[in-house]
Design a protein around this nucleic acid. Structure first.
Lengths: 186, 186
DNA sequence: CTCAAATGATACATATATGTCTCATTTGAA
DNA sequence: TTCAAATGAGACATATATGTATCATTTGAG
């Protein structure tokens, strides 16, 4: 099937992210079955388990970059943060699986990109602080850690059916901005 | 050594929790080496991998129960929540490893106890809401999810050296109470 | 239709983890 | 010191996952 080259590969990527997010130790056979393809096809596409995980990591990073790049930059930092949360919460599973695969985080190609994204978030947080939207006495490290963990908590709540999809980013935003914001905030 | 029966067993429990929290797929050999004992000794104490994980789960639950039971109950619900966070944040790794071992969460003895603890938290949250400390329009599920994820975020921040140990519970409390609280709050 | 690429199924070797067992050695209480 | 319990080391069988290779079949472009 020289035309539909994307079908099997994309099915594998989707199934792998879905399964590895909840079961980091799942076998390649499980993943292949969930994708509806043979295990051999998985090896033809990704070569090895590390190759697969590496592809997933790169794909997740690229997806996030793409989503974040759509956030308008001609607004206040607070509004940009709101936009970033809207864009990233639906990708919460991507990062959850990344954080569990600490094997891949040591990859020479992956680690710098993750660090770059974290620095982007830190920079945005610094801008929000400069605007007075976040309290100066709250450690930046805590803001980053709180946002990271709440993003997955939000995705998980949506996935579990406990929170409406469009409410989730708002709850994260509210929790962060009021929880760690300056005295006056909405 | 009929006297020091606790030495090896406790070393194994400590090492297992420490390692499994960051590497859920670690082998029993790694755990035994980290505990400074032979692999055979691990099997003598816990019988199997599931046996070990089960013991860790029960120990974690018991530790949490013990810590929470020390929180005074003759105060407001808000103060009780503050006390629970103070007590539970240092045990954040216990629950992180529990949430990753979804195998154990299906155990007939473990699942009810985890559910019981979650219900205790939900009940406390309801009390705080009744006092007016939390906004009525915020879903209880989100409050629970946010607290759970922030507890581990706080533990992780302390463990990474980015946040002072005694500041961590306060940051969680502030993030939750102001982030999800009613209009006026401290 | 024709044919090359892609796939599915399977066999195979290898590596690793699990669980059981044995035996010599160490430990600490009596 | 004596001795029983506990341990360490290692052999062993088993199960499972990984990675490679082969071959028949299917797919879809030309």
């Amino acid at each position: 099937m020289p035309g539909a080259r994307h079908s099997s590969r994309q099915s594998l990527v989707d199934a792998a992210i879905r399964i590895l997010a909840s079961q980091p130790g799942a076998s390649l056979d499980e993943i292949a079955r969930a994708a509806g393809v043979g295990r051999a096809t998985l090896y033809r596409h990704f070569g090895s388990r590390d190759g697969l995980v590496r592809e997933l990591a790169l794909a997740s990073i690229a997806e996030t970059d793409e989503a974040v790049s759509r956030v308008p930059r001609d607004t206040s930092a607070v509004e940009q943060l709101r936009g970033v949360l809207e864009a990233v919460v639906p990708l919460g599973d991507r990062f959850h699986f990344l954080s569990q695969e600490n094997q891949v985080m040591q990859d020479a190609d992956i680690a710098p990109q993750v660090e770059r994204q974290l620095e982007g978030l830190s920079s945005l947080i610094a801008s929000v602080k400069a605007e007075g939207g976040l309290a100066p006495d709250v450690p930046d490290a805590w803001v980053v850690a709180a946002i990271d963990s709440l993003i997955y908590a939000a995705w998980s709540s949506v996935h579990g059916g406990w929170v409406a999809r469009r409410e989730a980013p708002k709850l994260v935003f509210r929790t962060i901005m009021r929880g760690l914001g300056s005295s006056a905030d909405s």
